[in-house]
Design a protein around this nucleic acid. Structure first.
Lengths: 350, 350
DNA sequence: GCCTAGGGTGAATGCGCTTTCATGACACAC
DNA sequence: GTGTGTCATGAAAGCGCATTCACCCTAGGC
């Protein structure tokens, strides 16, 4: 910048103005500066700019690191590669945030939490953005506590761990209840089983609660626990779960009339397993998922599911950040995004 | 930081060392500093750090802004929403880069080029990262010329516009040639038609060249132009293209034996159109795409395609950046990533 | 003729950190 | 006792920019 100033015979203040506020500089001067900048290959330092102006024009996103980055190459080579739900999930959030951020003139800095570093990730992101979003269970609550004192943080999908933070969640419980109601009421199904996730997955648990509520409403037996729990909730686990439930049914004598899964990945796996076993969907058994991932529409039969506005989650996160940036003192906001039951062939609709 | 230093009775230099090089500080001092930092809610400024150390720990990605961010909400609500190829494409690159960047301890800054701003995007990204990747046709060549004098830039997918830059492309032409050969040689198909993209899409053009080469090899008529050109190469365009080709065939009398599309999205659209028209795939006609997107495996019949290592593109980009950061003076590298023909049901295999 | 207003520009300060370089405090060997 | 390292720390000089304030110049009003 000093070089540019010298070459064009102005002061650095003027060079700065050319970039920050072009109209305040005479056109002739401006052109001279711009030309010098080009000749010198001048690239304004975002760091210096950020330091001086105390704002970066960047928003951040921290998401969990479920997948092992080193397993990458292997998976890539495999045609039956199973895109995990988490992966699709963060992709969509990234896209949502990126879009919304762009609309507001922000760039997006993304980083998956590396479990290794002490606070490496958060520190790196937090120090470099005007505000950021955190996926549930990504950053230790105590760190968030500290950071949120300095800049806006919004928590995504999951319980609100810190009261004074903005927070967005999805109506998991409502959605699953609605879906279950549909199966019971509109299709007259009775023997319902639910495949959930681990206990510490807030989403999966909320969905199970919705399932239970609907069962209770309908006067059906109310389970204390999901019939099965999956760990990563992958397609492969869904296949195994479906087979396990079928095996169990063969022993018990009574095959369930509907299998509900805590996410679409598992439900799609189940579809495969059922096809192999010669069990027809939806004639012999209904299947439903949760999430509304693109694949759910492509499989045959198309999967009945609950569409979750994941991308909107990302977009709303940005909106909240932008709003808080504009008005730092306003009350913390907690949004719950609505979901919608998508009825397709796998439950007997469409 | 000054506050932390004061509160813990040390100098700012020591506070800095606690974060940069913890071992060089006595454990007792370190603990005092860390405690003070926690009490004060201290978050190191990435900007200041970057300014002083002349390195950010962030890599960047600029990708094109094909989709209109404001059309978002509408599209989201539509169950038949057509994920465009471009969208999936950039998602995968982002993921690839993110993974690789993480492995090397970098975060990732992403920004789609906003056509509006003068150089807003690039300037924003370029000034904030240690190096970055650019998708073809995203940033004006002249800007790249300037920026690349200051920091490492790698060009992705597309012709190498600037000689001294690192560059990665995908063997589009080889892949399509291989695929076409397969159809001609292994399935004995003859009447082949090709649906391409616009002339200024380097990928689509390269694929068409591969198609032509294979036709020439086999002694078949060699077309000068694709039989049809799509603009955005979406699924909807694929449907229309298939119908147009069918209509044309009805007039000519001779239906083609195989339809090749410049990407999977169009091929999948074609599958739908053919099904509607009662044309059986692959019995009546073979269909093939290009890209190897996840959907290509899910559709029925499963789509024969050329798998493109998009994610690897992102990963390799990061590798190249990291290498150049380590050794700035080394010769520019130009990689061509291999692709592989994936034979599935839509050509008569599997 | 002088005075004023305002647009265009420069000098100087500080943003919060990293990084020499210098200093002090010891421990050890001579 | 003096010399020679070593380790822990402090002082101070930037890093590249935004921004305030003061200044100059010109045009306009009287």
């Amino acid at each position: 910048m000093y070089d540019v100033a010298e070459r064009s015979g102005v002061s650095i203040a003027t060079v700065s103005r050319v970039y920050r506020n072009p109209d305040s500089v005479r056109a002739q001067t401006r052109d001279r500066v711009l030309e010098a900048a080009r000749a010198l290959g001048y690239v304004p330092s975002g760091n210096a700019r950020g330091l001086a102006s105390r704002t970066t024009g960047v928003l951040g996103l921290c998401f969990p690191d479920y997948s092992d980055p080193d397993a990458e190459t292997e998976a890539e080579a495999d045609d039956t590669y199973d895109d995990s739900a988490v992966m699709l999930y963060s992709d969509q959030i990234i896209r949502g945030m990126e879009r919304a951020a762009r609309r507001h003139g922000y760039a997006l800095l993304i980083a998956a939490s590396l479990k290794g570093g002490p606070e490496s990730l958060v520190a790196k992101v937090a120090g470099r953005v005007d505000g950021f979003a955190v996926l549930a269970r990504t950053v230790p609550t105590e760190d968030l506590e500290v950071i949120s004192r300095r800049l806006p943080v919004v928590m995504l999908a999951g319980p609100r761990e810190i009261d004074h933070l903005d927070h967005i969640e999805v109506a998991n419980s409502d959605g699953e209840r609605e879906l279950t109601r549909h199966l019971i009421r509109d299709h007259g199904l009775r023997g319902l089983v639910f495949v959930g996730g681990e206990k510490d997955s807030p989403d999966a648990e909320a969905r199970f609660r919705g399932f239970r509520d609907a069962c209770a409403e309908a006067g059906l037996p109310v389970p204390d626990e999901p019939d099965l729990r999956a760990v990563m909730m992958t397609q492969a686990e869904g296949e195994r779960a479906a087979e396990a439930l079928l095996d169990r049914a063969d022993q018990d004598g009574g095959r369930p009339q509907a299998m509900l899964f805590a996410n679409d990945q598992m439900a799609i796996g189940a579809l495969h397993a059922l096809e192999r076993r010669g069990v027809r969907v939806p004639e012999d058994i209904a299947v439903a998922g949760f999430d509304g991932i693109p694949l759910s529409r492509m499989v045959r039969p198309a999967l009945t599911t609950v569409r979750q506005p994941i991308r909107r989650l990302g977009e709303e996160a940005v909106e909240l950040l932008v709003q808080r940036l504009a008005e730092p003192t306003r009350e913390p906001v907690s949004l719950m995004l609505p979901v919608s039951v998508t009825r397709r062939a796998s439950c007997g609709c469409g």
